[in-house]
């Protein structure tokens, strides 16, 4: 009885740990087979890159402008009005838009739009036994399917971050204008606080987010089972796991960046 209960509690934990381990192994195999010749994934890389670009640019534009206008824009402006310090909104946007909202919203949109498409695509191929057929025909699915998606998502997420930051700042500009403020002081406090560390920190973070999205979504797609229903389940799990992984990683990364670069803690 005790053994049964222990096993029942232990089994989900073990499955979870095994799954995390499998994803780590997949990450390792992806990186080594990306570096080791031959490099047959060029065409697939370009098509995946353009696919993500085409799918994500508009949802990302709407999301970043809207959330930056609403959250750090209107809400923080309301708070700053008490001190008559609406010009400080620029400084807040360095913290909010560049360091956090830009990267996180990019990751959420990429996971929701491109990541789910990857899981559904690979999942359907797995169900139709295409992936097995590929392996039997001597084609390594990791090298030919996972590697191009991994590289394309890293690049596209990193680049989209810049785009998200620009439109996020535009949201801030809107908030200033709505409050009848001149834009000079906004840019002034923004550039006083912004440092190169903020920019590369943000770019590196989103690139790693892209890698996380690609690995989780490819893994969930390639391990889908149980017919059409299984593909649906895989997509659902892919999104949940990606979000958990991204936000957990964001915490660790932010903590590390702040600890190693204390100068960005100083508010000017």
């Amino acid at each position: 009885m005790v053994r049964n209960a222990a096993e029942r509690a232990f089994l989900p934990t073990r499955n979870l740990l095994e799954e995390i381990g499998d994803m780590m192994i997949l990450t390792g195999r992806t990186i080594t087979s990306a570096l080791r010749p031959p490099y047959p994934y060029g065409g697939e890389f370009v098509s995946q890159f353009l696919f993500a670009l085409r799918l994500c640019w508009f949802p990302l534009l709407i999301s970043t402008v809207a959330i930056c206008y609403a959250a750090p824009g209107l809400q923080a402006a309301n708070f700053l009005t008490i001190f008559g310090a609406l010009d400080r909104l620029g400084g807040i946007f360095v913290l909010a838009a560049i360091r956090e909202i830009g990267p996180n919203v990019t990751a959420i949109v990429l996971a929701g739009v491109a990541g789910t498409a990857i899981t559904a695509d690979l999942g359907a191929r797995k169900i139709r036994e295409e992936l097995d057929a590929l392996q039997v025909l001597g084609v390594d699915p990791v090298k030919n399917l996972v590697v191009p998606r991994f590289l394309a998502l890293m690049l596209v997420t990193g680049l989209f971050n810049v785009y998200a930051i620009l439109f996020g700042l535009f949201g801030g500009v809107l908030a200033e204008l709505v409050n009848g403020q001149p834009l000079g002081p906004f840019w002034d406090t923004l550039f006083a606080n912004a440092s190169t560390t903020d920019l590369w920190g943000s770019a590196l973070k989103t690139t790693i987010f892209g890698a996380i999205i690609a690995i989780v979504c490819c893994y969930k797609g390639m391990t889908a089972s149980g017919g059409a229903e299984g593909v649906g389940r895989a997509v659902n799990q892919a999104v949940v796991v990606t979000f958990l992984a991204i936000f957990s990683f964001d915490y660790v990364y932010t903590q590390m960046l702040l600890a190693t670069h204390p100068n960005i803690l100083v508010i000017k």
Partner: peptide, 19 residues
């Protein structure tokens, strides 16, 4: 194993053609 697989032809249940 990859070499070995060249000796095999496999017909999967639904053909498993690449879509």
């Amino acid at each position: 194993l990859f070499e070995m697989r060249k000796k095999f032809g496999v017909l999967f249940q639904d053909g498993a053609l690449f879509g």
